[in-house]
């Protein structure tokens, strides 16, 4: 039997966050279920008459040539990498932004410097032509 006594419900107490996140976990499951249910119904109700031509992959009327998985160009990798670096930097900045009201002026400047260094990286990428879509 599951014991619920370890779950106090007062904000700020240990375990409260978990209760909040239980809500989020549930809504994610509900979301997935809302997609799963119609699809399951569709599979049950819908006709199932597979034939060779029907299960071919779509290719504007002609047969698919070669493998479907084409090799991507390196461009995608560079953009994903630039995104990753910006993402990490901005995540660092979020606690700073939360504390903003209680920061001294020099602390604000430090945060701006942090972003400025990042901007330098963007300028480098730009000058190197890494931002061109070729």
């Amino acid at each position: 039997m599951i014991d619920f006594t370890g779950w106090p419900a007062n904000r700020g107490q240990r375990g409260f966050l978990t209760l909040d996140w239980l809500f989020i976990g549930t809504i994610l499951v509900v979301g997935a279920g809302m997609a799963a249910l119609p699809i399951a119904l569709n599979v049950i109700i819908g006709p199932r008459k597979p034939n060779k031509t029907k299960s071919e992959t779509y290719e504007c009327g002609i047969e698919t040539v070669g493998e479907a998985w084409v090799q991507l160009k390196g461009q995608y990798y560079i953009f994903a990498l630039i995104f990753l670096i910006f993402d990490i930097e901005v995540v660092f900045m979020f606690p700073w932004a939360v504390a903003y009201d209680r920061l001294e002026f020099y602390m604000v400047l430090e945060g701006v410097l942090f972003i400025l260094i990042l901007a330098g990286g963007l300028v480098y990428a730009w000058r190197k032509g890494a931002l061109e879509w070729v």
Binding site: W96, A99, E110, G111, F114, I117, G121
Partner: peptide, 26 residues
């Protein structure tokens, strides 16, 4: 969270690692 944000840019906190992290990412 607030304390974390302060500590990142406090001179007595982690200001050096914070800025170095930026340089490292670049």
């Amino acid at each position: 969270l607030d304390a974390l944000g302060r500590a990142l840019v406090d001179v007595d906190g982690f200001i050096l690692p914070f800025e170095v992290a930026s340089v490292m990412l670049v």
